[in-house]
Amino acid sequence: MIFMKMVQVGFSYPGQKKPLLNDINFSIHKEGITALTGPNGVGKTTLSKLMVGILAPSTGHITLKGQNMSSMALAQIGRLVGYVFQNPEKQLFCPTVSEEIGFGLQNLELPEHEVQRLVKENLAYFELEHLAQNFPLQLSEGEKRRLAIAAVLVLEPELLVLDEPTTGLDAYRKHLLGECLLKLVASKRGVFMISHDSNFIDRYASRILILENGRLKENGC
C-alpha cells in the first residue's frame, strides 16, 4: 500500500519568482531506506517539510495513507511521520533530556511506568543515560542530534523523515544510527533521509532520489 504520495507538487516561498519545486511526483511505501540528495539550497529541506505538513504545497497535493494531508492536523501527521529537523536545536524544548524523550509519550496517554520504561530504554540505546538530567540545549552537537532522533523515534512513527542526520556524528555514532534505521526497516517501517554523506547512503539506502533544478530524479540502482 502506498503510504505517502505527492502529486504534481510545486512550491515557492512568498516573494520567490521562480518556483523552488516543480511538478514533484513520487510515492513512498513503508519499506526500506530512501535517500534524497542534491546540491545545497535546491530545496531538500523544503521538500521534507512538505512531507510532514509544516509547509503546504503551492500547487498539487500530498496524500498520507490515502487522506489529503491539508485536512490533517500536525499532531495527527506527527503520529504517522516522525521528523528530525536539519538543526536539531529547533525541536528540543524540554528542561531535561529525559523529559524531552518522554514528551511525546505523555501525549499518548500511556501509563506512567510504561513512559518511564521507554525513556530509559531509549536513553540507553542512544547512550544518553549520563546526561538524563541535563539541559538539552547545552549538549554537544552530536548529543543534540541523538536526542532529537530519540525523542522522535520513541513515538514509533510509521515513516521517519531525517534531514541530514549524520552531520555532527562521529563514525561510531553514524554506525549506531545506521543500525537503528535498519532495525526500523526490519519492523516494517519506512525511512526517508536527506543526506550528502555518500558512504552512508551507499551503505544503507535502498532507493536514491536526486533533486535538481526543482525536479526530482530517481536513480535506478
Binding site: 492536523a73 500536525l74 529537523f85 524544548f93 501525549n107 513515538l155
Partner: peptide, 14 residues
C-alpha cells in the same frame, strides 16, 4: 519552529 515541533510530537493545538 518550536511550536511546530511540539505539535508534531502529538499536541493538537486546536
Amino acid at each position: 519552529d518550536t511550536l511546530i515541533a511540539i505539535q508534531l510530537r502529538g499536541v493538537d493545538m486546536q
